[in-house]
Amino acid sequence: MTEKKIRVIIAKPGLDGHDRGAKVVARALRDAGMEVIYTGLRQTPEMIAEAALQEDADVVGISILSGAHRTLLPRIMELIRANGQTNVKVFVGGIIPDADVIFLKECGVYAIYGPGTPTTQIVAEVRAAVLGEPQTAA
């Protein structure tokens, strides 16, 4: 009799190796009582979708600092949805130009966290997205 745990995948697709941000977010979500599956660097969209499926993730967090988000994100979203995981929430962290925010949201990404986002905000919004709690974002 354990309560439902929020399961989050944190992944870095593509070729950039800057994983500090991904680790900070992973750690913050862990400290908020979530189960964080950290997949590491240089993941393909296929690997990320496969991990989301096998781990029955509630949330997938994608960290991108390479500028390839316009290519990678649509593909990741498409694969996750094709697996039948229609409820999985996807957020993106990293360097995303303002001009691309609308594009990513249209792809189905529910939030974009740039540099300086407080981790408390990310925790609150992840929880809200999964449990439907009112958002208490800063």
């Binding site: 745990k5 992973a26 750690r27 979500l29 862990r30 400290d31 908020a32 009582g33 979530m34 189960e35 964080v36 599956i37 950290y38 997949t39 590491g40 240089r42 393909t44 296929e46 690997m47 496969e50 991990a51 096998q54 781990e55």
Partner: peptide, 30 residues
């Protein structure tokens, strides 16, 4: 974590070679 109940599951990091194979099902457990 004994304090928050959260967990960081990092075993998949080392399982890169098999994580794209649909014939291998990996499940991380806390």
């Amino acid at each position: 974590s004994p304090f928050t109940g959260g967990a960081l599951l990092g075993d998949r990091i080392r399982m890169r070679d098999i994580s794209g194979d649909p014939g291998i099902f990996i499940r991380s457990m806390a």
